[in-house]
Simulated scan of single mutants.
Amino acid sequence: MNRGPKPTGPTQRMLRVGELVRHALASFFARDEIEDETLTGAVITVPEVRMTPDLKIANAYVMPLGGDRAEEIVAALNRHHRFIRGRIAPSLDLKFAPDLKFFVDDTFEEASRIDALLRSERVQRDLHEDDDQEPDSD
């Protein structure tokens, strides 16, 4: 039996659980419970958490305030992923707590790159070239 095209992208459940994990991580990071010199004093934001379809893995995209030492901080979080999982699991209210994997969130960097491209002389020239052309009067 064909049920039509498979949905692409995350399901509502994946999005809901991702938000649940994101909030739990943000609360955990605010408490500063990890004893690691790399993380001492680091203010870490969690813009997004993407869940795998089976909800077993949470890919958390994080960024330290100011973006300083992002790779170093993500490496430290990945070293402590089991500890973090154990600390946030009670607040998740899930049958199984997902395994955590941390990544540097590069969306701001990517947005800046795209903005710079759009402001470049070459793109501006192409945009103004279209303005200079007169519409056909046929």
Rank of each mutant, 00 (worst) to 15 (best):
R3E: 14
D115N: 12
E19P: 05
V123E: 02
A30E: 15
F102Y: 09
L65N: 05
P64M: 01
I34F: 07
A26L: 14
R3I: 05
L20V: 02
M14R: 07
P90Y: 06
R31G: 06
R119V: 06
L55H: 11
V104Y: 00
A60G: 05
E134W: 12
R16M: 13
S120M: 10
R113P: 03
M1V: 13
R82M: 14
I73E: 00
L39F: 03
K101W: 03
E19D: 15
G66Q: 02
A75L: 10
F108N: 01
A70N: 02
T52C: 13
V21L: 09
R3P: 00
T38M: 00
I34W: 07
N78Y: 05
R87E: 15
S112A: 15
P98S: 14
D130A: 09
E33Q: 15
M51C: 09
T11H: 03
D93K: 13
R125W: 12
D106T: 12
D115R: 11
L15T: 12
P10G: 05
D131K: 13
T8I: 14
D36H: 08
I44V: 15
R69G: 01
A89T: 08
I57C: 11
V49D: 08
A58D: 07
P53F: 04
T52L: 14
L117C: 03
A75H: 04
E37H: 10
L117Y: 10
R69K: 10
L118R: 12
K56H: 11
P90R: 01
I84G: 09
A30M: 12
P90V: 13
E19A: 10
F103V: 01
T11G: 05
F96M: 13
E134P: 11
L127V: 12
L55W: 03
R22I: 03
V74F: 04
D36I: 05
L39R: 02
L20Q: 15
H128K: 11
E72R: 11
P64T: 00
M51R: 01
D136G: 10
P47C: 09
E33Y: 04
E121Y: 08
V123Q: 00
T11R: 05
A75V: 07
H23D: 15
F28L: 15
R125T: 13
M51E: 09
T45E: 07
L65V: 09
D93M: 08
P7S: 07
P64I: 01
N2Q: 07
G9S: 11
V49R: 05
S112F: 00
T11P: 01
R87D: 10
K56D: 09
